[in-house]
Computed example of a mutant assay.
Amino acid sequence: MITPNANYPAFSEKFSHQAACGKPARALLHRLAGVVVVAMVVAFSAPVVAQTDLERQAQCELSAIRDTRSPLAVQYIRSACNWLVVNGDSLLNASSKGYYICLVRQLSGAQSNEAAAAIMSACRTSNPL
């Protein structure tokens, strides 16, 4: 290794200058990389949430529609699952949540539209909106 002496006067200044300039440059590079990562997370978070909502709705429908033969019951189960996924965590809609949960639970397995209509009426009565 060459050490600074009379033959190489700028040697020590050159490396001390690079070291001083390298740290801010490296810090700037790290900040820039951090900004890029944050931007990517924000940009891709909406589609991930939408996919998760679709998956949650599909799971809700699959669990409730399984043995249901009534077209009316299937329609209301789908609607209730959609409402629960979109609004289920909202405190503003807490009073309506019981009604939609009742629909999903009680309409499951309904064999006729008449039975589905009676179940929907009972859910409405027991969980007033």
Rank of each mutant, 00 (worst) to 15 (best):
P4S: 12
S108Q: 02
Q106T: 07
Q18A: 01
E13K: 12
L29H: 12
V35W: 12
Q18S: 06
H17D: 06
A80P: 00
A110T: 01
Q57E: 09
D89E: 09
R26I: 00
V37G: 07
V86F: 04
V74H: 07
P9W: 07
C21S: 14
L84Y: 04
C60R: 04
V48T: 07
D67E: 08
R78D: 01
A10C: 09
S45C: 01
K23A: 14
V35M: 13
A27G: 07
W83A: 00
A43G: 03
N87E: 11
S45H: 13
Q57F: 05
A122R: 14
S95K: 05
S90N: 08
A43N: 07
I2P: 02
L107C: 00
S45W: 13
R124D: 04
A27S: 15
W83H: 09
N5M: 02
L92Q: 10
H30E: 10
Y8I: 01
H17Q: 15
V49H: 13
T3P: 08
P4I: 01
C81I: 06
I119Y: 08
L84C: 05
S16I: 06
I65K: 09
Y100W: 04
A115T: 10
A80D: 12
A110D: 10
L107G: 02
Q106C: 09
L29D: 15
H17G: 04
S108L: 04
S96K: 06
C81G: 01
C60E: 12
L103R: 11
Y8A: 11
G34F: 05
L54H: 09
Y76I: 07
N127I: 10
K23N: 08
Q59E: 14
L107F: 01
V104T: 06
R56Q: 02
L29W: 14
C123E: 02
R69S: 02
V49C: 11
Q59D: 14
S45M: 08
C81W: 00
E114T: 09
A10Q: 12
C60G: 11
N113R: 00
V41E: 11
V48H: 13
V49D: 03
Q106I: 08
H30L: 15
Y100M: 04
I65G: 01
G109T: 03
V74L: 10
L84D: 11
G88M: 02
K23H: 11
L91T: 05
R66D: 15
C21M: 07
Q106L: 06
Y76C: 00
Q51G: 05
